[in-house]
Design a protein around this nucleic acid. Structure first.
Length: 802
RNA sequence: GCGCAGGUGGUGGAAUUGGUAGACACGAGAGACUUAAAAUCUCUUGGCCGAAUAGGCCGUGCGGGUUCAAGUCCCGCCCCGCGCACCA
């Protein structure tokens, strides 16, 4: 008997699938989900593509496997794209993941090398995909034409390790998203001129559309919080003497009469103007110190700090003088960067007022009605809010205003890799778009990829590439040296996948509309950034009339991750990671690992790594294997249909569970089926060839999404010459699930006292009287007449007695 | 602080959404095979009483409640985890 040996089987089928990629991906099959799961035949799929992400090893594993498979490089779009959803797209579009991977692989390693990363794969030479860059650049160009891409100089997060700016979304706990280990530095802010996408223009509609999404509430809420809409008013305070206006944003215009001082952010541009001579030194010192502090330090220090500017403004409602302070608890990036402080009705202002002994004036009573607010006294706060805003507007000292927390998306990166921004900077014409016919702008080959040190990328040194003629005036000009955030690439790859070879346009709308939106998108760690960007770009393309549906993903599941046994995240610096390759190569194989990761817990739960887990699923796969081997060696014998009931039950259960993304219970059903078949084969010794063939084929096909290699091998052994991954999903037949008898639980006062077997067509009364006749029921009911007998059809009888 | 999701055996987790709690697996124990071990196969495994695969009592974080019936619903606590966090 042949033994189960993953080390031998897995490479064999990997090669087979590589050679027959389009054959495996069958567009016409309606077994989408099944395909989606089983398609990805790289062993790395164990860790990544079929569920729980082993978070820290993603890059390494991908790179190593790409190299094993003969690919020279990979890209984040790559691993995003290779996930479950990507397989979906690959299938829908009729191309294989391998094929799509070849399409979408811009360079990466060169930059890593430049960063001094030590991974051996960084030695590899990068390749770029001009086609993919071309359409990413085209999106930039269209955004630019629509006024949605603009350049601005502002303070921006800066990662010293990558020598690049980061978006707000890429800063996690004060650290760069790529460098977030304990030994990595905190990021700081720098003033840099860079490109932005005006995602704020879409804030309102992104927010409004969020509720209708069929996503989990947690993720929807994260999106809403990130967009962070607040309604309120902007109000002008005039500085005494100078006449300078200071505009503040508040969500509580009703408390205007209680505004007893103003607070400005240290970065506020008019601050210097209104600081008095006496206070100048104190203010300057404070501003310098607080800008030096990282935002994280500012947040950690909850103790309020601040300095008086020496100036006063007039509260437009009370006409009273209120002092103007500077304090870093006011954020320059939000609202107007200045606030009216109402210590009576705002905790933070109250804290500040207490510390610096500033006046507190109550303007809302316990009854939620206004007081001390002149003609607005007695009004309900909600009414007062409206009335005060109308009054402000009529007096031209303020207006109703809605503010969002979300900022424009910073898309410039000072990295070598990534699609170059298709802009030419001309001394006379300014920023000029590279004409469409000149796209793509391809990265030049360089020997040294380190950033140029002046805040620009390595591209600044590529003279031949850099120096060009202005498309408008023909004069000498230079290319933009920033490249685009790779998040842009991952914001639309799912659309390109549908039509990956189109040279004419970004994708064909008819094809895209046929498949969009994505039915089921499974990812990790993408509750905000990626999901908001992808929604934004899709909406933009929708507005351009390229795609009907403005939302990219119908369902989104944020899968859990595997953590170390102590619950901590895997991390390189802690050295507590688990390398999927080690497990695979130690003889258990990728199939066992994949199956374990799916079996350990529901997909959205985080699981702790358990060393015993993979041996467990290996044992299960081994049992499946053995069944097929023994069947092969057994000979014709007695007829038997003992296995059919359990087979049909398992097909039904597993199919429903997989549809529901309940992979753990689907696998449990397959294990039950296997255990049952073991018991049956002892009795009939595989005598009924036809029934056993059906049973084993069904089992193998069910297991295939989780253990694609082994199933393929067994499928061939069972006499097929087509792939198990092609239209093999078994059908169940309900007639085998019907039973002549059923088991009814019998309770007395809700406690289980007996079980009875009754025929399936027994009448309710019959069942009730049988239940009442049980010895144990009689014992507990006693002599008294039962008060009530409840029969829950096909389940239980509950006798209510005194 | 705000929000979200949870709390079930020694462990990971099941439970058709109000209907037999603990599926399946890990771990543990026993047996078969073996010179032996590993592998494999079979059985046992929530706690307590009991010879029992007779039956009983207790049991889903804690305290109350609704119901014929509560892991599931309601009220009040406690504890872990995650996300956001000086957003005016």
């Amino acid at each position: 008997m042949k033994r189960y040996n993953p080390t031998e089987i897995e490479p064999k089928w990997q090669k087979f699938w590589d050679d027959n990629a389009t054959y495996v991906a069958d567009l016409n099959s309606d077994k989408k989900k099944y395909y989606a799961m089983s398609m990805f035949n790289y062993p790395s799929g164990a860790g990544i593509h079929i569920g729980h992400a082993m978070n820290y090893t993603i890059s390494d594993v991908m790179a190593r496997f790409k190299r094993q498979q003969g690919y020279e490089s990979y890209h984040p779009v790559g691993w995003d794209a290779f996930g479950l959803p990507a397989e979906n797209f690959a299938i829908k579009s009729g191309i294989s993941p391998q094929e799509s991977m070849k399409k979408i692989i811009p360079g990466y390693h060169k930059q890593y090398k430049a960063m001094g990363w030590s991974n051996d794969w960084s030695k590899e030479i990068a390749t770029h995909d001009p086609q993919y860059y071309k359409w990413t650049q085209w999106i930039f160009a269209e955004m630019f034409k629509a006024g949605l891409a603009y350049q601005d100089s502002r303070m921006q997060w800066w990662c010293d390790k990558d020598k690049t700016v980061l978006s707000n979304e890429q800063v996690i706990d004060g650290k760069c998203w790529r460098h977030d280990s304990s030994d990595d530095p905190l990021v700081a802010k720098r003033e840099i001129k860079q490109w932005f996408f005006k995602i704020t223009d879409y804030a309102e509609e992104l927010l409004e559309a969020t509720d209708a999404l069929d996503w989990t509430d947690t993720v929807k809420l994260a999106q809403k919080n990130w967009i962070g809409k607040s309604q309120g008013a902007e109000i002008d305070f005039v500085v005494e003497d100078s006449g300078q206006k200071i505009r503040v944003f508040t969500t509580r215009p009703d408390t205007l009469f209680g505004a007893t001082f103003l607070v400005m952010a240290p970065e506020h541009p008019v601050l210097a103007k209104l600081t008095t001579h006496d206070q100048k030194q104190a203010v300057d010192t404070y501003v310098t110190e607080s800008t030096k502090k990282s935002e994280l330090e500012r947040m950690e220090n909850k103790e309020k700090t601040g300095v008086f500017t020496g100036s006063y403004a007039i509260n437009p409602a009370t006409n009273k003088k209120v002092p103007i302070w500077v304090a870093d608890y006011v954020l320059y990036g939000y609202g107007t960067g200045a606030i009216m402080a109402v210590p009576a009705h705002d905790e933070r202002d109250e804290e500040f007022a207490k510390k610096f002994d500033l006046p507190v004036v109550q303007v809302v009573g316990d009854d939620d009605c206004m007081k001390g607010s002149g003609k607005f006294d007695g009004l309900d706060v909600n009414k007062a809010r409206e009335d005060i805003v109308s009054w402000l507007e009529s007096e031209s000292v303020g207006e109703s205003k809605t503010t969002f927390k979300i900022r424009d998306w910073s898309v410039s990166r000072q990295r070598y890799w990534g699609a170059p921004i298709p802009i030419i900077n001309c001394p006379t014409d300014g920023a000029v778009l590279v004409p469409n016919e000149d796209l793509p702008v391809v990265l030049p080959e360089l020997d040294d990829f380190a950033p140029s040190g002046d805040g620009r990328s390595a591209l600044a040194r590529a003279d031949d590439w850099l120096k060009v003629k202005c498309p408008k005036c023909g004069g000498d000009a230079e290319r933009e040296t920033d490249t685009l955030d790779t998040y842009i690439c991952s914001s639309w790859y799912f659309l390109r996948y549908l039509d990956p070879t189109n040279d004419e346009k970004i994708f064909d709308s008819n094809i895209a509309n046929k498949w969009q939106p994505v039915d089921f998108y499974n990812g990790g760690d993408h509750a905000t950034a990626h999901m908001i960007y992808a929604r934004f770009v899709t909406r933009f393309l929708h507005k351009k009339g390229l795609i009907d549906n403005p939302e990219p993903f119908k369902r989104f599941l944020f899968n859990g991750k595997v953590t170390a046994a102590d619950g901590q995240m895997f991390s390189k610096s802690k050295g507590n990671g688990v390398d999927p390759l080690e497990i695979i190569n130690s003889g258990y194989g990728a199939d066992s690992l994949r199956t374990y990761l799916m079996f350990a817990a529901p997909l959205d739960l985080w699981v702790r790594w358990d060393e015993q887990g993979v041996p467990g699923t290996y044992r299960f796969l081994n049992r499946v294997w053995t069944l097929v081997q023994e069947y092969d060696e057994a000979s014709e014998g007695e007829k038997s249909d003992a296995m059919l009931r359990t087979v049909h039950w398992a097909i039904k259960k597993a199919t429903a569970d997989i549809d529901d993304q309940k992979y753990n219970t689907a696998i449990a059903a397959m294990m039950e089926l296997t255990n049952d078949l073991y018991k049956i084969k002892v009795k009939d010794n595989y005598g009924d060839r036809a029934n056993w063939k059906f049973a084993l084929e069904s089992l193998v096909a069910l297991v295939a999404p989780f253990a694609p290699h082994m199933s393929e091998e067994l499928w061939q052994q069972l006499g097929h010459d087509t792939s198990v991954h092609r239209d093999s999903w078994p059908q169940w037949d309900d007639t085998y699930l019907a039973s002549d008898t059923m088991t009814i639980a019998v309770q007395v006062n809700g406690k289980l006292r007996a079980e009875i077997q009754v025929s399936a067509d027994a009448s309710d009364d019959d069942i009730k009287s049988q239940a009442l006749a049980q010895d144990n029921v009689v014992k507990f009911v006693g002599d008294n007449e039962p008060l009530k007998v409840i029969y829950v059809p096909k389940k239980l009888v509950n006798v209510v007695a005194k």
